[in-house]
Simulated assay, not measured.
Amino acid sequence: MSNITKKQLEEALKQCLLQKPFDKITISDLTEACGISRMTFYYHFKDIYDLVEYSCEEDGKKALQNLIIKETKQ
């Protein structure tokens, strides 16, 4: 279940970034978008920057996996 919550928070962050600058996004914005408590957010991440780091790592993993798949098809 924790990976689902992390993914939800990652998606909420990306959606918020489409609507307002990073420095205007609050933990409350993210938790309200996911329907979770602030305590749940802090169970998974120490702060919003930790969520950003997680999101970047996940996007990097996806990009590398896509590259490997593309290379193996050639």
Rank of each mutant, 00 (worst) to 15 (best):
C56S: 14
S2I: 08
K73H: 13
T40W: 01
E10G: 07
M1F: 10
E32C: 02
I68K: 08
G60R: 15
E32Q: 05
T5W: 09
G60E: 15
P21H: 09
E58Y: 05
G35M: 03
Y43E: 13
V52Q: 14
L18F: 05
L30S: 00
V52E: 13
S2R: 07
L51A: 03
I25N: 14
T26S: 13
M39P: 00
C56Y: 15
T40V: 06
E71Q: 12
T72D: 11
G35A: 06
Q65L: 12
I4R: 10
E32S: 04
I4V: 14
A12N: 10
T26I: 02
L64C: 11
C16Y: 06
G60V: 08
I48E: 05
N66H: 02
I69T: 12
Q19I: 09
T31M: 00
E57T: 15
D47L: 06
E10P: 04
S28A: 06
T40D: 02
T5D: 12
V52G: 07
L64V: 15
K6P: 09
F41A: 01
E57Q: 15
K61S: 04
I36C: 01
K7D: 07
A33K: 08
Q15T: 11
L64A: 09
Q15M: 10
G35R: 06
K70M: 08
L67A: 12
C34A: 03
I68D: 03
C16N: 10
K24Q: 12
S28M: 02
S28I: 08
G60S: 15
K73F: 12
E53T: 13
F22S: 10
I36F: 00
A12E: 07
